[in-house]
Nucleic acid binder design. Structure first.
Lengths: 220, 220, 220, 220
DNA sequence: GGGTAATCGAGACGGTACGTCCAGTCTTATA
DNA sequence: TATAAGACTGGACGTACCGTCTCGATTACCC
């Protein structure tokens, strides 16, 4: 866990505007990883609301200052931890969206995987926490969106674009809108817990988006 | 503001399972309203994260215990405050979904109004806060969903059902799925702030859902 | 326990100067006794510092207001409770100091009894508490001294006066001073716990005081 | 004020048996002195009963936790404050009891000074408060007795011993008893306020005690 | 014997302080 | 100079009681 060595320290999430930014070259990678791991463990154990910087420091065997030096809030720590987690899962950089030529199948495959991820609290807890925190804290939200969300949306968009170019979608298709029609309802159910999140749901959603709710009905 | 007199006290949000529940018949309506109003004011002024029970009590001119007696957390207060706010806006019970016979127009009208509500921070701040808090606290989330969200979704569903019965939608249309395809992307943009939330977006979304992204395209 | 029926309500201890004094003739003797008993029980169980009006009310099965109506503080309640306790022990009014003609023997007898009382926490706890509270609260202290202490000192003084008149003490003996030389050291040990309080100590004290007081007399 | 640098932290007064004791070597002497001074000032201003930890912290410009870290109660703070006060008055260690050869004169001189101290509320208020608190809280009482009271009693005892060795007191004189006959009545009047505390009273008391104790001796 | 005025049990109320937890800053000593 | 450790100021937490204030339900006196 906790992969790519020593990214730039927390650039922008915090309001702090550090009085004098620390020297990143002397940063202890050992501590950094320990902090990230501790944060992930703890958010799973006690939940985001009861997650404290002190507990992270204690669990990581690290001074509090070492956390404050490099991150501006527990949310920022958790964001980096989630990025590290995602990075570990896909070490060769960015994740590859399948492209078998069958758009519906590819989307279903990816969305089924997403459903599974959401069901795994180990992965879902920090993301849910970040989503919630980001909703309330615009600064964090922007960073979360930019670093975690957008890269994934872009993959969807790329796949849809390739489908549009292949003539599998109308040329005037609003790609962004379509992505959100896929991702929005899924995320909605996950966050709001209005109903269980299943593979069947994901597949029905893909079918509905690609087919259209009233598609061809009015026409006839 | 703060309408319907003395609903049952916080039934279920709190984990406390009160040692000895207070006597609701002797509850001070004056204090209850003051607390709800103060909570709404403050969440608008300082945001949810910096909202404190102490500040609410001070602003309302109330002892802290009077808040803890009737609510289990600041989130629970805010939920009741939002319900009161919604109740005041629509005193004659539940809001009426327009039904002009033109489904697309009706949906667009409602969703444009929703976009406007989301843009009004006075209304949006507490809802955003509750959504976030509910994502992290399942108990609160359930209550939030049940009391605020579901009633609204039901209205959408009713309207779609009436459309389906009128033959404007295919008879096998999954109403729930369709509702989520409308509400999900809108909520997603609002929460994640991935892109600005406009009337045009709402209308495009309605068209896409009713028409289908690739509707008729593949077919031909 | 809790004897003489319905004495005047708290005359003087409190700063309250009641807005409108209650009608003592309608006072519930049942409640009064229950309160006094509860206070004594509780002070024995939890100590004076953790004794609360609410606990007394709950234990006595009485509304808080019923206590506040008749007493001005927990100390005032405890003072009445102690008076009732003392009154019960000596129902026929004031206690009789022995007068066998042998001053030393009489004093030793009384002081041995006092040592025993001090050793009985049932009796000692409230008195110790009142002594302590009175030291800090002059108003209460005055009342405590006047109602509990002085009557006892007067008995000592009377006995010494009778001895002086019988020629067993020098005619210029300062009675008050002598009383305090007897009672002071005993109380000192009891309060300060500098050393154990024994019968032997009490007797040695009497001998030392009388040896001093009669010294010049014997000589001539 | 607030002299000797960094004595051991509150060893024994509290029931807490600290979960993990703080590192006394890193203690802030600045804060410690500020707390002690604030406590003394406040006890003089509002009295012991209305003295609060919060007020001490506020007056001292200190976090509450800093008080709770080093003391177990307001009484413990006040005890240290009194010790510091006493230590400041007599920096060269322990106070010297006069020994002019004239025992009665020496005792009178000291007891007159004690009467004056008791009359000075600046000094008397905390001592009175501690005496009262100690009467109710045995643990505190023991500490109070050991640290403040006994050292003074020992001085009396030493002076009396020297007098006994000089043949000014009978060789079988009970020194401890004699000390208590001097100190007990004085303290009794001071605590109980049964009568005014004057120089004349102190002198009469010394005469009475010495007249008694030395009576049979002088004769021969 | 019904009217009425007070006390009574109960407990909600506006407050104050409690003792605890953590945030974020600062200091000290290692390495 | 970055670190582990942890004391510091400060602020909010949730709880316990304070003393006051309604509420019916007795209860005792007066008409």
């Amino acid at each position: 866990m906790s992969s790519s060595p020593l990214p730039a320290p927390d650039a922008g999430t915090g309001p702090a505007a550090a009085p004098r930014s620390p020297d990143a070259t002397r940063r202890s990678d050992r501590s950094r990883r320990a902090i990230l791991d501790a944060a992930l463990d703890l958010v799973g154990e006690v939940g985001y609301n009861k997650l404290t910087i002190e507990a992270i420091a204690a669990r990581a065997g690290v001074g509090k200052q070492t956390i404050y030096r490099w991150w501006s809030s527990k949310a920022a720590v958790l964001l980096d931890a989630s990025l590290a987690l995602a990075g570990d899962a896909q070490p060769e950089g960015v994740w590859a969206f399948p492209d078998t030529g069958d758009l519906a199948a590819d989307l279903k495959s990816v969305m089924r995987a997403t459903v599974d991820e959401f069901a795994d609290e180990r992965y879902a807890a920090p993301v849910r926490a970040l989503t919630a925190a980001g909703a309330t804290d615009p600064e964090l939200g922007a960073r979360f969106t930019e670093r975690l969300l957008e890269p994934q949306l872009a993959l969807y968009e790329d796949r849809l674009r390739s489908a549009r170019e292949a003539g599998q979608l109308p040329p005037d298709t609003d790609l962004r809108l379509t992505v959100e029609m896929l991702v929005g309802p899924l995320t909605y159910r996950w966050l709001m817990r209005t109903a269980p999140l299943t593979h069947a749901y994901a597949e029905a959603l893909v079918d509905a988006v690609l087919g259209g709710a009233g598609a061809g009905w009015d026409k006839s």
